[in-house]
């Protein structure tokens, strides 16, 4: 039995007929072909499937697509939508915040939400915020560094809006 839903995904309204039992992660990956959202454990433990729903990190393997009806969903694909890397992506790249990259979309989206709330987090706050995202490769040190570096970068560009707009124009 299909149910019609309209979800704003990365700023675009998407309407689809879905079965109520379809999980949000499958809606994103299979219906919309947004495969940047990964499935790691499928048991609500790893955070690889994390997306933002109305700005809040949610494990998309543990939410139904029908529950996202009328809501805003942000996936990793939105981060570089403008064609340039988001500061969090640039920082993960710069600081080697990833090895295989499987956990990275979830890590970055949780980090983006953290930086929205706390633009200048301490190491402890970063570790705490990311404690629902599991990485099997990096040992976390560089992930924490990457988030700190993105925070500094984002603060610097917020502090000089004039310069930023000037360089964007040139």
């Amino acid at each position: 039995m299909g149910q019609s839903i309209t979800v704003t995904v990365n700023g675009e309204k998407k309407t689809a007929e879905v079965e109520p039992r379809l999980l949000l992660v499958h809606f994103l990956r299979e219906k919309l072909r947004l495969t940047g959202t990964h499935i790691g454990c499928d048991t609500t433990h790893c955070g690889a499937c994390t997306v933002l729903v109305d700005g809040t990190p949610v494990k998309s393997c543990t939410m139904l697509a029908v529950q996202a009806d009328g809501q805003q969903v942000t996936t990793v694909e939105a981060l570089a939508a403008s064609g340039t890397l988001h500061p969090i992506q640039a920082a993960f790249k710069q600081e080697h915040g990833l090895q295989c990259g499987f956990c990275t979309p979830g890590m970055m989206l949780t980090s983006v939400a953290l930086l929205q709330e706390k633009p200048d987090p301490t190491d402890d706050e970063i570790r705490w915020a990311l404690s629902g995202n599991i990485c099997r490769c990096t040992g976390y040190m560089n992930i924490v560094k990457a988030v700190k570096s993105a925070a500094a970068q984002m603060k610097a560009s917020a502090a000089v809006p004039e310069a930023a707009t000037a360089s964007a124009r040139s």
Binding site: T44, G47, T62
Partner: peptide, 9 residues
Amino acid sequence: IADPIIRNR
């Protein structure tokens, strides 16, 4: 309780 992402919901 659980982890921060689970606590969000």
